[in-house]
């Protein structure tokens, strides 16, 4: 999977490295800003109120 992505990135090594880091950064921010905030209320970690 990662090998396949690496082989499909264009350009010389330095360009590929920059593109790969950009992909990682994009994936992490997608998780941090979209996926985790959405998933968090569905998980049994942090409910602090009592039922009213």
């Amino acid at each position: 999977m990662y090998g396949w992505i690496w082989n499909h990135l264009p350009g010389p090594f330095a360009v590929r490295l920059v593109l790969a880091l950009a992909l990682v950064a994009g994936a992490v921010s997608l998780l941090m800003f979209v996926v985790f905030p959405w998933a968090e209320p569905l998980l049994p970690f942090n409910n602090v109120t009592t039922e009213q």
Binding site: P44, N46, N47, V48, T50
Partner: peptide, 15 residues
């Protein structure tokens, strides 16, 4: 004051 208990869980409430 109410919060979750134990830490990292919402099994109970600490009051």
């Amino acid at each position: 004051l109410t919060t979750c208990h134990p830490r990292f869980s919402d099994k109970e409430r600490l009051i």
